[in-house]
């Protein structure tokens, strides 16, 4: 596996030579610094720790400063490990969008937009109760029955109910790399990507 950390910029669309229009998301990916190389011998597993985004020197803790000093770089905002990385990189080296090519199938990991406390219709896709008319009361978006009566006498575990929605880590598979602007570190992937503009996403293959 190889991957890179990026920031969601926004969306646009792109035409292929036949005129087919594809919606795509612009991600500013990297350059990331390799800040730690974990190996089976020393850590029990192989991984590459990448760091991305500038952090003010005064906001960094002493521990962070020293950790990043090992890679001879300024403190970074985000660090993420990529397990069993296929990239042969040493500590202090940079990873850029060049690791991908146009046409690659990639996975994009992000955190979805927080929706707050939501009912079951929005949160779980329930269809609500009853109809609008014919003497129905105001139960259009209610969850309905929660389960059986005396045989059980309790609500089953995992019953889907209203609650906090959104803000989940989501991985989208099979997105295509449509275009890469290597000089600006922009990468365009087909379709939408979880999260709000400016949120951190991982692109991996």
């Amino acid at each position: 596996m190889k991957g890179i950390i990026g920031k969601k910029i926004g969306m646009t669309s792109i035409f292929d030579p036949t005129g087919k229009q594809t919606a795509c998301t612009i991600i500013e990916a990297g350059p990331c610094v390799v800040t730690q190389v974990k190996t089976k011998e020393s850590d029990g597993y192989n991984a590459l720790q990448l760091s991305f985004g500038e952090k003010k020197e005064k906001r960094a803790t002493k521990a962070e400063k020293n950790h990043f000093a090992k890679a001879q770089t300024a403190p970074k905002k985000f660090s993420k490990e990529f397990r069993d990385s296929s990239l042969e990189k040493n500590i202090g080296e940079t990873v850029t969008v060049d690791i991908f090519e146009e046409g690659d199938k990639v996975e994009v990991v992000g955190t979805t937009k927080g929706k707050g406390f939501q009912g079951v219709v929005k949160r779980h896709g329930f269809s609500g109760v009853g109809e609008q008319s014919h003497g129905q009361h105001d139960r259009q978006r209610a969850p309905g029955s929660l389960g059986n009566s005396s045989d059980a006498s309790r609500v089953m575990k995992g019953m889907r109910m209203a609650g906090r929605d959104g803000g989940d880590r989501v991985k989208l598979k099979g997105l295509k790399v449509v275009k890469i602007f290597a000089d600006k570190n922009y990468i365009l992937v087909s379709g939408s990507v979880p999260g709000h503009i400016g949120s951190i996403v991982l692109i991996q293959k």
């Binding site: 910029i9 926004g10 922009y186």
Partner: peptide, 8 residues
Amino acid sequence: AVAYVHEQ
């Protein structure tokens, strides 16, 4: 960034 990509 969006303007740059559009221009390209």
